[in-house]
Write a protein that binds this DNA or RNA. Structure first.
Lengths: 205, 205
DNA sequence: ACATACATACCAACCAGTCGGTATGTTATC
DNA sequence: GATAACATACCGACTGGTTGGTATGTATGT
């Protein structure tokens, strides 16, 4: 089955790799077809336009990521804080690879396409918030444990995604994944400061 | 004097606005010239290539930002923590405008150009770290005050820039600046948790 | 026979970059 | 102070290659 991928899947996989390396606009349909080993006819058979591929590849990336994190080892942990910190550690560990391997296709695409391709923007929003919301139950449990009703679980989940996106930009700018890892270290410290201290009656910071 | 800007400056100003809206690759030289009200001849008189404009506009943006923050009201504050938090508040306040007005040209450009245009990547790194380092002295003072030698001032300064970049991506993805503001709220809370508590002998998180 | 899944051939628009030319300084020489 | 020599700033038509997209073909499974 592995070598029997159809043209659509091959194009989506190629798009994931190439777009993460050079962005959506700089990636041409021709290059995508060449990388995927199919012809332009196949491309426009499966996607009515380049924009439609952008929407599809966002979904494709979301599904791949969902599978990656759903089967990650830390999911067996029982304590929500352990699991949340293990998520951050897991993302930090992935930084050991090459830039196009660990960066987020959604952040890369939405950055250039948010104004020019509304459909792509919407698709990226869907996948990013969808992934963020997988963290929300644990965060909600932790907030309840600390008696903090001033923080929105979904908001903190999105903040975590934001820090990740920012870390990717730092890595791209410096060419050094350690800068990104250091940033995720600060995120980790924030979460421990929030959740590893005693529950409080009056809301502090 | 305002209407007497030369072609080079007009092109750089136009590039700052247009590239923040649609990215570097999707912006054509022709569109830049049209927006700036100059001809293509003028463009290639001042810049040998589109890439060279990219490098120049990164520097241009850095200088504009430096001016903006150097003259910001909070610079008169005396306490380093007040000043650092006021910086975050200042950046949060700017989010009230339109997306292309408050987002960072450097993050937008380096995201697409880090692999294809090394010179642009280097220019963006220079400007981002340069701006981050303006926060480092206050951060160093605060870390010393807390007796924390386990945190690198420049690293925390870069983390702050990373969170900002991530917040911009969240705003672009959701089309809602409040999501970005909420993320900066978490950054603010992290800084207060770090710096508003009592100095400690043994390093905690 | 008919739809699905591709391949081939092609097109008009657009792209970054070039080139010959002009207008307006600035400097040097006499 | 006049003039020649050169530099800078800018113009806009042009070019060769690339772009996203189309039109039409063919092979295969049902």
């Amino acid at each position: 089955m592995p070598p029997q991928k159809d043209a659509r899947t091959k194009l989506l996989d190629a798009a994931m790799a190439v777009i993460r390396g050079k962005g959506f606009a700089a990636t041409s349909v021709d290059e995508l077809c060449q990388t995927a080993g199919v012809t332009k006819g196949a491309f426009f058979h499966h996607f009515r336009s380049k924009e439609e591929l952008g929407v599809a590849v966002a979904k494709h990336f979301g599904e791949m990521a969902a599978g990656l994190f759903a089967t990650a080892p830390y999911q067996t942990m029982t304590d929500p804080l352990d699991r949340l910190l293990a998520y951050v550690d897991f993302r930090t560990a992935i930084l050991a690879g090459e830039i196009p391997e660990y960066t987020c296709l959604l952040g890369t695409m939405v950055q250039e396409a948010y104004a020019t391709h509304p459909a792509i923007r919407a698709a990226c929003e869907r996948e990013i918030t969808g992934h963020a919301l997988t963290l929300a139950p644990d965060i909600a449990a932790l907030l309840a444990r600390q008696g903090r009703s001033d923080i929105d679980p979904a908001g903190l989940a999105l903040h975590i995604q934001g820090v990740l996106q920012g870390a990717f930009i730092l890595a791209k700018a410096t060419g050094d994944a350690r800068v990104a890892a250091d940033s995720l270290g600060h995120l980790r410290r924030y979460l421990t400061l929030l959740f590893e201290t005693q529950p409080q009656r009056k809301a502090l910071p």
